[in-house]
Every structure is written in C-alpha cells, then in structure tokens.
Design a protein around this nucleic acid. Structure first.
Ligand SMILES: [Mn+2]
Ligand SMILES: [Mn+2]
Ligand SMILES: [Zn+2]
Ligand SMILES: [Zn+2]
Lengths: 141, 141
DNA sequence: GGTGTCTTTAGAACTGTTCTAACGTCCTTG
DNA sequence: CAAGGACGTTAGAACAGTTCTAAAGACACC
C-alpha cells in the first residue's frame, strides 16, 4: 500500500519516536502509534485500540495490535497496567504517576506522583530492587 | 460422606466464621476454609487452592473452589487482588494493608498499612466514593 | 536481483474463569 | 415422615483475553 503524499507533522514525530526506540517504522506501527500518541495521555486496552483502528480504516490484525503494544512497552514507549484481572491497559504516560480506577466504567485517570507519598518503606526482603510502585485508588463510579 | 468424629478446634472456629458470614457450612466450604484460614495470612490463587485441596485428599471440583472463593470474598472473609492480569489472588488478610509483589515468583507479601501514607488526595472526580486503595510495590526477585 | 531478517497475518491454541444443567443436600412445613 | 423448595456441588462446555504457529510479505543490505 502507498503512503499518503503529505504526512502531517504528527506523522513525522511518531516516526522519529519509533526510530529512536529502535523499532522499524512499519505502516502498521506508525498507524497504531499515531492513534496512541496523537492526543495526550491515554489508557487503552488492546481491544480498544483494535476497534479504534477499525474506525479509522486502519486495517491491522489483532495479533499486530498485541505485537505493537508489547514492542512499544518493551522499548519504554508505553507502560502496561494490570488492574482488573483479565484486561491489560497500556498507558501512554510512562512517567511516575498513579491512578484512579473507576470500577463501573473501567476507566483510568492519572494522579500526579506528588500527591502520594510513601513513608518508611519496610525492608524490601533480601535487599531486592524495586522495579515500580503502583498506587490504584478504586472509586465506585 | 461422614464427618470425622473429633473435629479439631480449628474446625469449630472455621464453622463459626462461615455461619457468622451467613454461609452454609457445607463439607466443601469447611474443608476449603480450613485450608485457607488455618495458618496465618495467605495469598492464594484458585489453582493453588485447588491443588492444595487435592494434596489433602479434599475432593472438590474446580467450580466449587471458584464458588467458595467468590462467596467468601462477597462476605468479607477474603479480599481479591488483581496484580498480574490473568491470575486472581485471594487474600486472607482483609484488613487495610499493601503488598510487595515478587515479579519472578509471583508471590505476595504484606506491608503494614502504616508504612504508606497518602498525602493530599486529588479531587476524586464527581465526589465519587473511594472503595479501596491498593499499593503494590513490584520487586525484581 | 538475491539473501536474510524482521513484520504481519489468519486462525488455531491456550489459560484462567464462568456458565450450564443435572444432580445432591438439607431445611421447612404440613 | 413426606413433599417441596432453596441452596450447593459438579463435570464439562463455553467464554474471553491473549499468545502461538506457520506461512506470506516487506524491507535492508549486498
Ligand atoms: Mn502482556
Ligand atoms: Mn473474580
Ligand atoms: Zn496513567
Ligand atoms: Zn495481603
């Protein structure tokens, strides 16, 4: 399939992000990355991204969506969040932050890191290295 | 099947816990509750409990294990924890507390509530009620 | 253009969990 | 006690999200 003649600025940016991450900017990855990163921070499931792709006439297989999400996550472009056993969310905000989780809708909302403070961490047994701290505030809504 | 003649003290305690919770103390529930609550706080998956039951010659179906875990959770005897999208853990410690999660082994370890403090919670949007705060510290071990 | 590596894909397979529908258990009430 | 009914258990089928397989496609490099 041909590329459009006039890629928007967003395209260029996304393309560079992929290259910098060491990922070949294939047609599919570019399209998915554009959907993911074009509009601010998002928390998306694979199924959501797959459907959004369909809506935008981006024809990718579901396997490709999963491949891309995992590739992006491995390269630090996304962060995977497990909240409700059985769906994985992928967060375009990769900085340290926390989440509201709306139980009714399944939506996530960011909480800035400096609203949460953890005092006197107990001895991480065996001096093990901490890889991440997740705070999830579940709200009934 | 017959009951043993001399139920240990633990049996009686467990039986009372089930009754107080409004759950009929069936043979299966009693046996599972005994496995769950007999020895301090535990974090178990359905599969683990199912296997432990087998080991102890407690013959229950997998469906019954799931039914019991969910019934116990609904009645406040257990707390369900979702950490690694695809397995649910059930925590016999139902008080407020947090967790270390050992990524390698998949094990959980409690962190006392007073080691974690959350300052100036942001506006829970729409004044929604908070149902729970989960802090998970993932460690590489 | 040839060659090797990476990517995509459809669909099958897998896995944890839930559902179905039949059967068992036991309490209630006459 | 008999009959009825609510509740509980079960094997296996079904389900849903995810991963795997194997083959075809794209592309970089020579
Ligand atoms: Mn994953
Ligand atoms: Mn559950
Ligand atoms: Zn986020
Ligand atoms: Zn715990």
């Amino acid at each position: 399939m041909r590329q459009k003649k006039t890629p928007a600025v967003a395209n260029v940016t996304v393309l560079e992000r992929l290259r910098e991450a060491g990922l070949r900017p294939t047609r599919q990855r570019l399209a998915l990355a554009k959907l993911l990163f074009a509009r601010g921070h998002r928390h998306m499931s694979a199924e959501e991204l797959f459907n959004e792709a369909k809506t935008h006439r981006v024809n990718v297989s579901l396997a490709t969506v999963y491949n891309a999400l995992h590739d992006f996550t491995e390269k630090g472009l996304l962060r995977e969040i497990s909240i409700d056993s059985n769906i994985s969310y992928f967060d375009t905000n990769t900085g340290n932050h926390h989440h509201f989780y709306f139980e009714r809708s399944g939506q996530l909302e960011d909480i800035s890191e400096d609203h949460i403070s953890i005092s006197s961490l107990p001895p991480a047994p065996g001096g093990a290295e901490i890889s991440r701290v997740d705070v999830i505030i579940r709200v009934k809504a």
